[in-house]
Nucleic acid binder design. Structure first.
Length: 838
RNA sequence: GCCCGGGUGGCGGAAUGGCAUACGCGGGGGACUUAAAAUCCCUUGCCCUCACGGGCGUGCGGGUUCGAAUCCCGCCCCGGGCACCA
């Protein structure tokens, strides 16, 4: 045919088209364009540290394939990128390298940006944001002030993790099994500090309820994790008076008030604030103090707490069961959490596993008050474990015979009317502590004045800038406190001397609303324009890792609800659909710098080309599954693109001038056999790939469909005999268009080689035609008793009876059926025949 | 303990009630080449058989069905999340 064919040079092609895209602003999204449907596609913004590896790239490749597909489908696509630029690693790196966190961060951002461009992701770069810019974080401060006005932001003393070696507060993530991450032999202490909190608990119910609207769009396991985290629990609060101590009482929270007649003790947490008062004047007090101290000092390691043996002591005091009037001994025990419920509980050994275990050890009575509703009754002498199911209430005075549900309702109502209790809902979720004693974050915009107390920084003084010249030592308290120029200020109210807040905000604040800023990134008067947000929101599709299933995604939902209450947005949920992609692993574990198993994105792109990297990450596994990186398997994707390039290059010359109109299709009545194959295979592939993009995103099968189509086209060689050039051109153009979301650079190059102009970013996705996917003749399997015994060729419109007849006539089938009785035949049209014989 | 995933060739995976192992990697054989690389062709689940052919086979055991990797019941194993939450 033609002479020597040029070789596929990914580096050259990729640079060429990236430049073209940039010059054409090919991926700019147009605000408030009502002529097209909008599509907001978002990938989680990276923390710019270390190197971008293939784990990042997988996330962006999945997103980019969808973004490009949606554009071809006629959507106005918003596909932005930015940097989660505040955070501890920058500060630590700065201390280590004697640089400024901003320098370190900016260098990383520059590198990340370069690598993302090297992969040709179709971002609207005009909208790039960086959370460490004062132009961004001033809006963190602005939101903080609005929350302060609303009472959502408040200050209280709270326990923090404190390392006595570092002399600083540690984030929960920096506490490893109760020890400091930098001092493996130093136990982290608990210390009380004044901290700023955001009242996320005020939205607990809403956060839980609104998850109903996310069902279907969010992975069930993410919803399950959030549900678990919020931890809603409905129950009853009951007050127990202490016998012979006037006015002293304890409240307990229980979800099973129906078991209260079976209570055999009242148990307090060692951390309960009233323990000391209770022990006043009790004989043996000194011994008890010792016991208390031991219980309180027990390891706080998570693993230990869960498996620790139950221990406790009897206080010598008694509480009165308000339902039965019975006196219950008051105990203090390690298994009662101070932070949950009321820090006290009623122990019902017969119907709670933990209480049973405790009662066994300390010989407390086990009183059965619930019997199974449908199974055989429990017998006291055969009781070996707690019965925790609902059932029918017994031995409970006036409540006997009720079901658990009825008893809970009745007893809660009675407690309320008699004044010793009420129905209550508790949550595991706690308010969000946002104070960090760190430098590299958003300064909290508050001033402390001796005269006026806590004073908000006025809006017109925002942003409160991070001072650039601060000495970072990693020691002591908040770094900002060591900068007198920053700390000392004047009170906005009285003008007198005052001090600035020296803590900064948790970096999760930055990422809780960043996706709103993309819609209007340069606005200096507001965090964003309401109308523009209204146009773009909600986010149609969010793509990111499962690691953020709780914190980031819960905080973002909370922020949205606060913003709605502030009148800034009108929607209840910011993200309609969430896709969590699997990790990229090497040697069975996630890629990470510390493990030294990182495959750098740049190295990968230089060796094989960005398109090959993209195709491989899509092909190697379905996107939600973890993917084991294989240097050998990537060769397959490289070979595939090389083959595609050679095929198109071989035929491009003679097809270049051929006019091509994708809306016109071949007349199958006059087509040759080869032409029919080309047309049908093309439309079959179009159908499969379109389905993959529209439904479950299994791009691995999209790539394999294209590989099969490529093989089919090659099998029809020579393509200049018995095939009209127009049909070859249509097949190749459809191929290139289908490839373009996944391997955009080579697709652009081939498109140009085929004589098509204007670039692919303006092209439409090719529609398949159902009738053109149909084969004239189909080979279907013939089974006897469900076992494959032969095959017959049937034509498209054949009836079931005709199919059966054909199958029975098949020589091999006939031989097997000889002398046997056919009981029944099953025909699945165009799929299969099954003959049941005896 | 509870909740969510998952278990298919040597490997990544395909098939979601209808031909198990598509596509790719790896392996074996061949063509081209002085040679190598690249490329192309053939082959590749296990067992029996010279062969034709047959049997087995989707973690295990049952069930439903003309037909099960797929649906149902009961287990086992692996991964992840939560975990003394009253």
């Amino acid at each position: 045919m033609t002479g020597r064919v040029a070789e596929y040079e990914p580096r050259q092609i990729e640079a060429k088209w990236q430049k073209v895209w940039e010059e054409q602003d090919a991926f700019d999204a147009k605000d408030c364009d009502s002529s097209r449907p909008k599509y907001y596609l978002l990938e989680m913004l990276p923390y710019p540290s270390g190197t971008l590896h293939m784990g990042h790239m997988r996330n962006y490749t999945i997103g980019d394939a969808v973004a490009r597909y949606k554009r071809m489908r006629g959507f106005n696509v918003l596909h932005p990128m930015g940097w989660d630029a505040f955070g501890l690693p920058a500060e630590n790196a700065a201390i280590k390298n004697q640089t400024h966190p901003r320098e370190w961060t900016n260098a990383n951002i520059a590198e990340f940006r370069r690598v993302l461009r090297r992969f040709g992701f179709s971002y609207d770069w005009r909208r790039e944001i960086s959370t460490c810019d004062p132009g961004y974080y001033r809006w963190n401060q602005w939101f903080f002030l609005r929350m302060l006005e609303k009472g959502i932001a408040y200050r209280k003393k709270s326990k923090v993790n404190w390392c006595p070696q570092c002399e600083t507060v540690l984030a929960n993530e920096q506490v490893i099994d109760g020890f400091c991450w930098r001092h493996e032999d130093t136990q982290v202490e608990s210390k009380e500090l004044e901290q700023w909190f955001w009242r996320i608990t005020q939205y607990a119910d809403k956060l839980l309820d609104d998850m109903k609207t996310l069902a279907g769009g969010w992975p069930e396991r993410v919803l399950a994790m959030q549900r678990n985290w919020i931890g809603k629990s409905r129950g009853t609060r009951i007050r127990f008076e202490v016998a012979q101590m006037d006015g002293m009482s304890f409240e307990v929270f229980t979800t099973r008030v129906d078991t209260i007649y079976g209570a055999s003790a009242l148990v307090l947490s060692p951390g309960h604030p009233q323990v000391n008062q209770l022990l006043d004047g009790v004989p043996g007090r000194a011994w008890m103090e010792g016991q208390l101290k031991t219980l309180r000092q027990k390891s706080t390691k998570v693993a230990d707490v869960a498996t620790a043996e139950k221990e406790g002591f009897f206080t010598g005091r008694f509480a009165v069961n308000p339902f039965s009037g019975e006196n219950l001994p008051i105990w203090v025990a390690n298994f009662v959490l101070a932070e949950y419920g009321t820090g006290a509980l009623m122990a019902v050994p017969a119907h709670d596993e933990r209480d049973y275990e405790f009662a066994e050890k300390y010989q407390l009575p086990v009183k059965m008050v619930i019997q199974p509703a449908h199974a055989a009754p429990l017998r006291a002498d055969q009781f070996s474990e707690a019965y925790t199911e609902y059932g029918r209430v017994v031995n409970s005075g006036p409540y006997n015979g009720l079901t658990s549900e009825e008893a809970i309702a009745r007893m809660t109502a009675d407690a309320q009317s008699k004044g010793f209790g009420f129905g209550e809902t508790t949550f595991r979720l706690k308010d969000w502590g946002i104070s960090r004693q760190r430098y590299w974050g958003t300064p909290i915009p508050v001033i402390y004045c001796d005269k006026d107390g806590i004073v908000a920084v006025p809006d017109d003084q925002l942003p409160v800038r991070l001072p650039e010249e601060v000495k970072l030592t990693g020691q002591g308290k908040s770094p900002l406190a060591s900068d007198p120029q920053f700390v000392n200020t004047t009170c906005p109210k009285c003008g007198g001397p005052a001090r600035r807040e020296t803590d900064t905000m948790d970096t999760f604040v930055d990422s809780s609303w960043y996706f709103y800023r993309y819609t209007d990134p340069h606005n200096e008067k507001a965090p964003f324009d309401k109308e523009i947000v209204k146009y773009w929101f909600t986010i149609d599709q969010y793509v990111g890792g499962i690691t953020h299933a709780i914190l980031h995604l819960l905080y973002s939902r909370f922020f949205c609800k606060v913003m709605r209450d502030l009148g800034l947005v009108q929607h209840d949920e910011p993200i309609a659909r969430l896709f969590t992609q699997g990790m990229v692993q090497k040697g069975g574990v996630a890629m990470s710098k510390s493990r030294g198993n990182v495959v750098g994105a740049v190295e990968m792109a230089e060796k094989y080309g960005a398109d090959t990297g993209r195709v491989y990450t899509l092909f190697a596994a379905p996107p939600e599954k973890d993917l084991e990186w294989s240097e050998e398997a990537i060769e397959g994707s490289s070979r595939f693109l090389n083959k595609v390039y050679r095929l198109v290059a071989k035929h491009a010359e003679r097809l270049r001038e051929m006019p091509f109109d994708s809306s016109k299709q071949t007349d199958m009545a006059t087509a040759s056999a080869k032409e029919k194959i080309l047309v049908r295979r093309t439309h079959q592939t179009l159908k499969r790939v379109t389905n993959d993009f529209e439904t479950r995103w299994h791009f691995n099968t999209s790539v394999s469909s294209l590989m099969e189509l490529l093989n089919e086209i090659q099998a029809q060689e020579p393509l200049d005999v018995d095939v009209s050039p127009l049909i070859v051109k249509r097949a190749l153009c459809a191929f290139v268009l289908m490839l373009s979301p996944m391997a955009p650079h080579i697709a652009e190059e081939l498109w140009e080689m085929l004589g098509q102009s204007g670039g692919l970013s303006k092209e439409k996705w090719p529609e398949y035609r159902e009738d053109l996917t149909k084969e004239e003749q189909i080979e279907i399997p013939v089974q006897i008793n469900g076992r494959l015994r032969g095959k017959v060729l049937v034509s498209d419109g054949i009836s079931d009876d005709e199919t059966t007849e054909l199958a029975l006539k098949d020589a091999r089938i006939a031989a097997l059926l000889d002398g046997k009785q056919v009981v029944k035949t099953v025909v699945v049209p165009k799929k299969l025949v099954n003959i049941v014989m005896r």
